[in-house]
């Protein structure tokens, strides 16, 4: 054993871990090695990440957001699809094309996890694996997911998928495996390292910029201003789940 003076940050962290293993002693860890707030990547309770999808800018024949998500998070590969029924295929994000039944107008938009403020999937999860981060991102902690699929029953948006077969060669930033539930996590690893979600990047690159990403809690952010200035809708607004993903021109 090393002597006390040589103990590293991990030992300091461990003392924090000892107090509670699942939810860690707040604040202990970062304070231990000084303030580097600007560089730190803790999910910030002062923020709420969200998306505003402008259906009028979304091209029906473009699938770039879905492709980017597949590449980033490593789902839906040929090897994976060969093992499963099409109905069992994962769908973190999907494109839908809709026709207004009264006017006949057609629109197209991506649908992913809506990152609700009051997520039913989090309420129903027996173990707490389905969770909402401080910054509003809803995701599955696959370490304690038992694969009961109750969250999939509860989600009004069909945003979640169950991994039906063994997965190999995952991306390092997107662990996923047989027997657990998964869904869009707004590219949390990218956000934590100061990057925008893959679908947002892809949509901008494709020249559509139909997905606006930003902090819903910041009144000066572009997304907040846009939500103030234009009509927008939440999917299944009747359920009052206050989703972090909104749609305009739908």
């Amino acid at each position: 054993m090393t002597n006390r003076a040589e103990m590293t940050r991990r030992d300091i962290l461990k003392s924090g871990a000892a107090a509670s293993t699942l939810t860690l002693a707040p604040g202990v860890t970062l304070m231990a090695f000084g303030g580097t707030a600007e560089a730190s990547s803790r999910a910030d309770a002062g923020k709420r990440w969200g998306l505003l999808i402008d259906a009028s800018k979304c091209a029906a024949d473009c699938n770039d957001c879905v492709t980017a998500c597949k590449v980033e998070n490593g789902w839906g590969s040929q090897t994976e699809l060969e093992q499963i029924d099409p109905e069992q295929a994962p769908e973190w994000i999907r494109k839908v094309t809709l026709r207004d039944t009264s006017t006949g107008r057609e629109v197209s938009a991506p649908v992913m996890c809506q990152h609700c403020e009051a997520p039913p999937c989090v309420d129903v999860c027996p173990t707490g694996a389905s969770m909402k981060r401080e910054d509003g991102i809803v995701l599955v902690d696959k370490h304690i997911c038992i694969g009961c699929r109750y969250c999939m029953m509860a989600c009004p948006f069909k945003a979640r998928s169950f991994v039906h077969a063994e997965i190999t060669d995952q991306n390092v930033q997107a662990p996923r495996g047989k027997g657990t539930v998964e869904s869009c996590n707004l590219c949390a690893p990218r956000i934590d390292s100061g990057r925008i979600p893959a679908c947002v990047e892809a949509c901008e690159k494709a020249g559509h910029s139909a997905i606006l990403f930003g902090d819903l809690k910041d009144p000066d952010s572009a997304i907040s201003k846009a939500l103030n200035d234009y009509d927008s809708v939440a999917l299944r607004a009747d359920l009052e789940l206050d989703p972090g993903v909104r749609y305009t021109n739908l």
Partner: peptide, 29 residues
């Protein structure tokens, strides 16, 4: 820096601790 002996005994605690930090609190750096 902790040495191999330390790691052999404590690697699971460290991994488990970091996993919750990363996953649930978004602390990665």
């Amino acid at each position: 820096p902790e040495g191999n002996d330390y790691w052999r005994v404590h690697h699971m605690d460290m991994l488990r601790h970091d996993r919750d930090l990363t996953m649930r609190e978004g602390v990665r750096d």
